[in-house]
Structure formats: C-alpha cells, structure tokens
Design a protein around this nucleic acid. Structure first.
Lengths: 150, 150
DNA sequence: GAATGTTTAATTGTGTGCAATTAAAATGTA
DNA sequence: TACATTTTAATTGCACACAATTAAACATTC
C-alpha cells in the first residue's frame, strides 16, 4: 500500500489546471505586471498605488483604516508608508485624540501623481479586452468571494 | 490651476471600489490564507504547494518548465526549490544532456504529502460556497484573462 | 571551428506579505 | 482610583516576487 501515486490514480482535483486558486494567483500577479510600465514612470509600486487611490479619495486615513480597506496589516503597511513618507507623498502623525493611531495624509507631491494615474485604468481596460458587462460580472464575483473569505 | 483635486472631480475610475485589480489582488491573498491551516500542517507554503501539484503529476520538470507553468522566474524558484530540497521533498540535478537545465524530481517524502493534500480542494470549495457552474465560469474567465495578460 | 548570439540558472537587491511578539495607549470594570 | 483587557502600531523574522546582472552551456553563423 506504499506504492507511489501514479498519474493514473492522481485525483483530477489536484491538477493545477483544474484549480481555481492558481489562475487567481497568476492573474493577480500578471495584473500587477501590467500596471508596472505605468507605475514605474511614477516611481510607484502597486500596493503604494492602492494606498494613493484611497488617499486621493479620503485625504486622511489611519493605518488601521488603510489596513481594513486593503486587507493588509501594519507589518506590511508601516514600512511601505515610511517609504512613501520619505518621498513626500504622504505624511504620518499620531492622532492627538488617540495616540495609538497614526494618521496618514496625502501630500502635494502625492496629489500631483493623480494627473498621471488617471490614465491608467483606461490603458488596463484596453489591455484586458473585456466588455463592460464582462468586467462588471467578474468584479462582482470576485467581490462576493472576497466577502466570503473575510 | 494647481488647486488640489477634490472628491467632487475625483474620477470614478480611480476609486478602489470600482477597480478590478483590487478584488483580484485581495481575493488572491485571502485564498492563500484560506489554504494556510491545511498547508501549515504539512509545513508547506502556498507556492511550494503549487510546485508539488505539478510534480505529483509530472514526476520531473526542469526549473524552466516549472517557471513556464507557474509564471515564476528562477529568482523566485531557485531559493524556493532549495528549501524544498533540504526537506527531502524534491531532488535537484543538472540535465546531463543539457547542463544548463536543472531537473527537479519528486522524492518519496514529497509524494507522501499527497495523501494529506488531496483533501484540501474539497475543504476550499466548501469554504467558497460556489456552485459547480459558478466555479467553472469564474475559472474560465480567469484563464481567459491569464491568456490575454501573458 | 572560432566568433557571435541565445538560453538557462543563479545571484543580488528591493519591496512586499504575514505570523508572532512587543509596547504604548485607551477602555472597561471592580 | 487601581487593575485587567483591548486596541493600535511597530518590530522581527521568514518567504516570496521580480528586475537586473552574471556566468555557463548550447546553438548559429560564417
């Protein structure tokens, strides 16, 4: 009974091609790569871009709020935000009303990046060749999964 | 004309919630986290699990072939495979017919992990609460995107 | 068959991700 | 007020990812 598993009795479920996890993992990374040429021009990384998307909209957010929205913890965000602070894109300061919290604010140099960034989504949509209904359907399915997984 | 962008003229396309990239990025990471409790029991990481999925099926693959299938380069794979070699899950040797290539082979200890791993997909499918048609539709859409992005 | 170009891994350096721990601040409770 | 609990960031350590470079082996061309 210790005979090694042959391809004959290899469960179909364990084949890479039948998994949902792999295309998800791979598409996510390829997506990030598709952003690269645009982000590189702005000296931005992909997660840093996500932080800016939130700060362009909300102007100020605590590290906790950023983490809740991006599903990232301080172990990831703290060093990332320190790098963004060094480049003068964001400010970091303690909340005087709750010294535990650190408030991240958008800075002028960070705001300036929006002019270039606003072109990115159209480039990506073109690259993906997805119709609007396809795009919406996929987005909703992923958001449903996200809800179930969090 | 240097007035900072207000939320009023903030393009809808630049909101995190309207992006496809973010749910993809987040779901992918949450998926990996959902595998964690099972993989942890086997002392496996998620990309190592993907390597094993391929080796259980193909028994031997070059680093190049693994990289082609997983869309990962040697900068990621070489150290990962060295760690797997240390744990006796895989073997690494040069191809005598082409000394540039390194052949990765599954070892008995790596094969043994399949007994536990074969339970993982069912656990995950249950966790996702996806019907078979939903599962298939999503998988196909992601594979289509993967093709367009590579 | 030497020169040139291509392919393949390995290496280096930077930036995430994330589990686990630490420490400070705030909150709840006796 | 004292004490325990909870919340929030920061820190530490490890494992990816990936761009860029290096070096060896192979292939091509003349």
């Amino acid at each position: 009974m210790n005979k090694p598993t042959s391809s004959a009795d290899h469960p179909e479920l364990l084949k890479l091609e039948n998994q949902l996890c792999f295309p998800l993992y791979a598409v996510s990374r390829m997506f990030t790569k598709a952003y690269q040429p645009f982000l590189q021009q702005m000296d931005l990384t992909y997660p840093q871009y996500l932080v800016l998307l939130l700060l362009w909209e909300h102007r100020e957010l605590t590290v906790k709020a950023l983490g809740d929205k991006l599903l990232l913890d301080s172990g990831t965000l703290t060093p990332l935000l320190k790098r963004m602070e060094q480049k003068q894109w964001v400010s970091r300061r303690r909340d005087p009303r709750d010294e535990r919290s650190v408030i991240i604010g958008i800075q002028p140099a960070g705001d300036a990046l929006q002019q270039q960034a606003c072109r990115i989504p159209e480039h990506l949509i073109e690259r993906l060749q997805l119709s609007v209904p396809e795009f919406e359907a996929l987005r909703q399915q992923l958001n449903t999964l996200l809800t179930r997984l969090t």
